[in-house]
C-alpha cells in the first residue's frame, strides 16, 4: 500500500545569531543552513496495517507524514501510496487519503459542522446515498447528533475534534494519516477517538499511520511502530519487541499486608518505588518467576502483578540512547 525508499527532505533555513547588530547584518548578508528533517528512510506498509510513528519533537515524523500525503515534495527518494506518487496530487490519489491534524482544523469556524460535511461531499463528489449512509454511521459512532447543528465556535475542543474526524472521513478514505489526533483531549475523549479509529480500520480495511505523543494511543492502536529520530529510522517492528529490546526488565508490583524495610526488598530486585503497602521491583525477565516465589515466601503479599515499564519511560530511554550514540559518533562528550 505504502512504499518509501531512501526518502530525504532537506530545508534551507535562514540563520542568524541573536541581537540587533546581527539582525541588521542579515538584511544585507544572509547565511543559510540546511536542516535535514528526514535523512534517508525506507519502509513498506501493507494494506490495512496500523502503524505508529514515534520520535521526539522535531524528529521528522510530521514531515514524513506530509510527504506521504503529497503536501511536501521530497528532496530525494521514492514514495508511493497505493500506486500513486503523492507529490503529483492527482485527484484519484487525494480521494483515497485523509489527514487529520490535532493542532489545525478545517471546519468552518462560524458555521455548524454539517456545512463543512456538505462542502466536503461536493468537493469529493460523494454520491448522495453513500454520503447519507456514511454520515449516519459517523454520527452514530461518534455521537454527533447534538453537535453537527451548532456553530463550530461553540463546540468544545473534544467535540470539535470528533467533528474534524467525521469531516475527514466523509469520502471514506482508504489511507488515514493522523497527526496527533488526540492532543489536548481528556482521557475519556481520547479513548472514544481510539475506539472509533480502530473500528473504522477494521470495518473498511483502511491503512493507518499515526503520530502521537500519547503512548496510550500508540499502544492501543498500533501493533507496529516506526521510530524516527533526527530524520533517521531507528526501529521498525512490533511495539512489544521494541519494549523488550530497550527494557528487557519487567516490573513486579507487590501489595503488602504489613510494612517492610528496604533492606528486605533489596535482595529481590531493583526497588523502583516503595511506599507503605506497595513496592515496585524491577527484575530481569528470566528472573521474574524466581523473584515471585521468593517474594511470596518471605513477605505477606496480598496482591501481585507483573507489568512492562511504562511506555513513556521506555521511549525516553530509547531517545536518550540515540542522542548519546550521536554524541559519541561526533566525538563530543
Amino acid at each position: 500500500m505504502i512504499s518509501v525508499r531512501g526518502l530525504r527532505k532537506h530545508y534551507k533555513v535562514h540563520k542568524r545569531p541573536p541581537g540587533l547588530k546581527a539582525a541588521l547584518r542579515s538584511l544585507v548578508h544572509r547565511s543559510y543552513s540546511t536542516v535535514k528533517a528526514v535523512d534517508g528512510i525506507s519502509f513498506d506498509i501493507r494494506p490495512g496495517e496500523r502503524v505508529g510513528f514515534l520520535g521526539p519533537n522535531g524528529a521528522g515524523k510530521t514531515t514524513t507524514l506530509k510527504v506521504l500525503a503529497g503536501l511536501l515534495h521530497p528532496s530525494e527518494g521514492e514514495v508511493r501510496v497505493d500506486g500513486h506518487v503523492p507529490r503529483l496530487r492527482e485527484d484519484a490519489f487525494l480521494k483515497k487519503i485523509m489527514l487529520v491534524m490535532g493542532q489545525k482544523q478545517q471546519l468552518l469556524w462560524d458555521l455548524p459542522p454539517a456545512e463543512t460535511f456538505e462542502l466536503n461531499r461536493a468537493i469529493y463528489d460523494v454520491p448522495r446515498a453513500q454520503y447519507k449512509q456514511t454520515l449516519d454511521e459517523l454520527v452514530g459512532l461518534l455521537e454527533l447528533e447534538d453537535l453537527i447543528g451548532k456553530p463550530t465556535r461553540q463546540l468544545s475542543l473534544g467535540e470539535r475534534m470528533k467533528c474534524e474526524l467525521a469531516a475527514a472521513l466523509i469520502h471514506r478514505p482508504r489511507v488515514l494519516f493522523l497527526d496527533e489526533p488526540t492532543i489536548g483531549l481528556d482521557v475519556a475523549m481520547q479513548a472514544t477517538m481510539r475506539t472509533f479509529i480502530k473500528s473504522y480500520n477494521e470495518r473498511y480495511g483502511a491503512t493507518l499511520i499515526l503520530t502521537s505523543h500519547y503512548m496510550d494511543d500508540v499502544a492501543a492502536l498500533c501493533p507496529r511502530v516506526i521510530v524516527i529520530d533526527k530524520g533517521l529510522l531507528s526501529y521498525d517492528g512490533s511495539l512489544e519487541a521494541l519494549v523488550q529490546r530497550v527494557r528487557p526488565e519487567k516490573r513486579v508490583v507487590l501489595r503488602l499486608a504489613e510494612p517492610v524495610d528496604d533492606a528486605r526488598l533489596a535482595p529481590l530486585g531493583k526497588v523502583v518505588s516503595h511506599e507503605p503497602g506497595m513496592a515496585v521491583l524491577q527484575v530481569h525477565q528470566e528472573a521474574v518467576n524466581a523473584t515471585i516465589s521468593r517474594a511470596l515466601a518471605s513477605l505477606t503479599v496480598t496482591d501481585l502483578t507483573v507489568e512492562n515499564a511504562p511506555l513513556e519511560e521506555v521511549m525516553g530511554e530509547l531517545f536518550a540512547e540515540g542522542k548519546a550514540r550521536r554524541a559519541a559518533a561526533e566525538g563530543t562528550p
Binding site: A69, G70, L71, D91, I97
Partner: peptide, 18 residues
C-alpha cells in the same frame, strides 16, 4: 501563515479555485 492551507491542498479540486 497558520498552515491550514494543507487542508485546501489535500482536496481533489483545483486549489486556486477553492
Amino acid at each position: 501563515r497558520k498552515g491550514t492551507l494543507d487542508f485546501v491542498l489535500l482536496k481533489p479540486a483545483d486549489a486556486q479555485f477553492l
